[in-house]
Design a protein around this nucleic acid. Structure first.
Lengths: 245, 245
DNA sequence: CGCGTCTTTGAGTCGCTTCAATGTCTGTGG
DNA sequence: CCACAGACATTGAAGCGACTCAAAGACGCG
């Protein structure tokens, strides 16, 4: 199976040398078992990570022990970028399923601007995309009901899995526990359960163990409070004047 | 009054040529009146903005008309970066007070990597910082009570104003309406009001029109659910190997 | 003075939480 | 191959925090 570079090339196509570079990262991947941490809040920031395979959550802990999952990462995502601005890591990265990740050290990152300028710009745009996604999630959590929230999340997840070739006919693997979904959407696991039951009771989705199928896209989209974000793809790069040769 | 470049230099000190560049931006500033938009959701993405003076909100609209304010920007902030990844702007930028902003065009941005590499890296780190802040806000909104949320927001705001020299002895101007605070924290204006009254009834803060004073930092911090994020400052740059000459 | 915007207050309701118990599945060891 | 433990899902009942609806102050401005 080829490494999931689709996210890296979403905004800027990679030059041959750059492709070689990231292929080099991929060679040094390591396995992390389900439930184990890739990096914990407070750990030193030695670099960022590239997720080759599996699902990983990025979360922050509150003082009272409550946890907010900030994002569920899929294969192809870069992890840990935000902590570059911090003295110690501000987010925990935990493997939801068994996961394969490789580390991109600070040193390599620092050289990226000169060694792989197109990749650097691509990562910058990718980071902005993550910010948009965070803003969208914030708006779900801040301003919508549990049904709207869950609907929006499932649709978003489907789109992302779909882009990675991991969804077929609206169906996809779903390894998250209801507890985790709750921590992501700011709801209790109990209420997540009732909301799930509402959605599949109404026929919007179907569930079997470890798997979800979206049965009625139109209906779900009707529930969800905001549409799909119009990411610009390569146009974002062109717009900047394709500065990196 | 000198332009608020403190945010631009938080992570990487600017070279003389770079300082000249941003001073050039500042020369072309324009005024935006309180209540008016700098850019609306759906507008074309012609560049980003630098906020010279005043308060600006960045918000997303949901289909049902509800609005989520994603961030309150202060003088020195860069605005509109996330929309670089989008085909049309995904966020509205609205002047909360009269504001002075200048535009940084796509073309200028595109050249930044080669023309002002240190600034480019500084902006990249700054963007990561914004991501951390967004994550923190998400965790407030997703997992804390109204009191904790408001306390955390006021403390955070104070710290930011303080860094810009706009707070004295815990006191600062506060031009937001309770409606806007509600849209920011995911609560109704009515409930924001009651929460405010609780906070100043208990003596944590004092309010007079358009102004807030934090009277009991220790107490407020006790309410707030997470501490201050440990931003790395110049160390973040050093860690990357100071790659940009 | 009068109008619009914002703040404050009260009363009633609802969505989500809490607490608690039961059901179901999976893996594991005897 | 069955018994059992642990993790997860499901369900019910009761409570509470935040919302809704509504009305009345307070302030600023023309």
């Amino acid at each position: 199976m080829q490494p999931p570079f689709h996210r890296l090339e979403e905004f800027v196509p990679l030059a041959a040398a750059e492709l070689a570079l990231v292929t080099g990262w991929a060679a040094a991947a390591r396995w992390v078992e389900r439930g184990h941490s890739i990096r914990r809040e407070g750990d030193p920031v030695n670099g960022v990570f590239f997720l080759m395979e599996g699902w990983v959550s990025s979360s922050m802990m509150l003082r009272d022990g409550r946890r907010q999952i900030v994002k569920v990462h899929l294969a192809g995502d870069m992890l840990g970028f935000p902590s570059l601005s911090l003295a110690q890591a501000g987010e925990s990265l935990d493997a939801i399923t068994d996961a394969r990740v490789c580390t991109v050290s600070n040193r390599v990152l620092g050289r990226l601007v000169t060694d792989a300028p197109r990749l650097a710009i691509g990562l910058m745009l990718s980071t902005q995309k993550e910010r948009v996604n965070l803003m969208r999630q914030l708006s779900w959590v801040g301003a919508t009901s549990s049904t709207e929230r869950l609907a929006a999340f499932l649709l978003d997840l489907h789109d992302r899995l779909s882009a990675a070739g991991m969804a077929l006919d609206g169906g996809f693997d779903f390894p998250l526990t209801q507890q985790q979904v709750g921590e992501l959407l700011g709801l209790t696991p109990v209420h997540i359960n009732r909301t799930f039951r509402t959605l599949d009771g109404t026929g919007y989705i179907r569930r079997s163990k470890g798997r979800i199928t979206i049965a009625d896209f139109r209906g779900l989209r009707g529930l969800s409070a905001n549409g799909t974000a119009p990411f610009a793809g390569q146009a974002a790069w062109t717009r900047l004047g394709e500065p990196a040769r």
